[in-house]
Amino acid sequence: MRGLTVLMVLAASLVATSPRAALAQQPPAAILGVEITMNQPEASIGDRVLLTLRIRHRSDVAVTATPEAPLDVEFGKQNVTTLALPDGVVQTTVTWTVQPFVLGPVGLRAFPVAWVTQDGRTGRFLVQPPRFVVQPVRTADDVLLRPLKDPVAVPGGPPAWLRPALYSLAAVASLALVATLLWFLVRQVRVLLGRRHGGPIMAPIPVVITAESSARESLDDLAGIRLTDSNAFEQYYGTIAFVVRRYLSDRIGFNAHALTTDELERRMTANGVDRWQARLVGGLLERCDSAVYAHRFPDPASADHDLTVAYEIVELSRPGAPLIGVLPRGATA
């Protein structure tokens, strides 16, 4: 059974105090519990403090959060793990390594956590990290200069032959680069001479346009549209529906433009697409039809989310798409 696959994009940055858990904004029904902690209340300049966010949710929900680091605080790459609990829920744990480079109390701003379900419902809520204090390593009246410590000898250093071998490898790579440039120049000279003397001209290498690149390029054009009137909404949602149907026709191998939304869901399922992915496509196309034909227009934030869902449909349907997101109960990572 394939794992649940969902991608989301969110950001907002923050800092907090005290290692006790900081409470989040009241989470929605899909989220069963939220806890965010720091592993230590005090640190020094450059120390690594571990920020941990634990979210308990239903097994059909995926969550994500990406804080934006302030100028004086550095965030390391996030680490995400999921755990199926005995009571049938899933716990997603996200950790960041935080390095402060400013003295005094450090408080990160609350940042959003986004969630999405298999049937395309989404939402977000805020979590507030705890505060912590960065202590100076010397007293305020300590102004004396001290000599640097002797370099620390690290055992198990690289062998003596490694440096000459790296130099030799760099020389070989440089020679290969020079040979490639010379070959390219000779080839270009031959082409120019062939044109001057009426000889055959080498045809340029065609650029391969895939279904994914074509769909993404069409969706990228929608990013600059301002949804200020009905014509803009109709163009926006009409383009999303056309691009999604064209992409599914190219990728799965049937004429998606000739099918209704219900027929398209059944045809996708019959062609081996997961049922919840087919429902995700059907839900998006129904919202597109509602905007284009019934003139029921959502708010701009929901319209931006629908564009994100269209990107995710392209990502989920491409060959060899990685299985990421929340694993169902009983599955293994």
Rank of each mutant, 00 (worst) to 15 (best):
Q91Y: 01
A110D: 07
V154W: 13
V152H: 09
P105R: 12
P159A: 06
V94T: 12
V127Q: 03
P158W: 07
R131Y: 06
R121T: 09
R138P: 00
L148S: 09
P129H: 03
T117R: 11
D150G: 01
G156N: 15
G76H: 13
P136R: 09
W161M: 02
L126G: 10
R163W: 13
G123W: 08
L162N: 03
P155R: 14
R163N: 05
N79V: 15
V106K: 11
V102W: 04
V152W: 09
G88D: 11
P158I: 08
L85Q: 13
W96A: 01
T139K: 10
Q118K: 12
Q118L: 14
E74R: 14
R163C: 00
P112I: 02
A153Y: 13
P158K: 14
L144C: 03
G123E: 03
W115D: 04
L166V: 15
V102E: 02
G88P: 05
G157R: 14
L126N: 10
W115V: 03
D87S: 01
L162W: 12
F125Y: 11
V127R: 14
T139H: 08
F132D: 02
D119F: 01
P130Y: 09
F111N: 11
V154H: 12
Q99R: 12
A165C: 02
F75T: 00
F101T: 09
F111I: 04
V143F: 07
W161R: 10
L83P: 00
L162H: 03
V116P: 05
A165R: 14
L103R: 05
T82L: 01
F101Q: 07
T139L: 14
T93I: 10
V98I: 15
Q128A: 01
T81R: 10
P100M: 03
W96V: 00
V154P: 00
V102K: 07
L148D: 10
D142A: 13
L85A: 05
L162P: 05
P129K: 06
A140I: 15
P158T: 00
A153E: 15
P100T: 05
V143R: 12
F101H: 12
L148E: 11
Q78W: 06
A110H: 10
V89R: 00
T82F: 11
L145D: 13
V98K: 04
V154R: 14
V154F: 00
F75M: 13
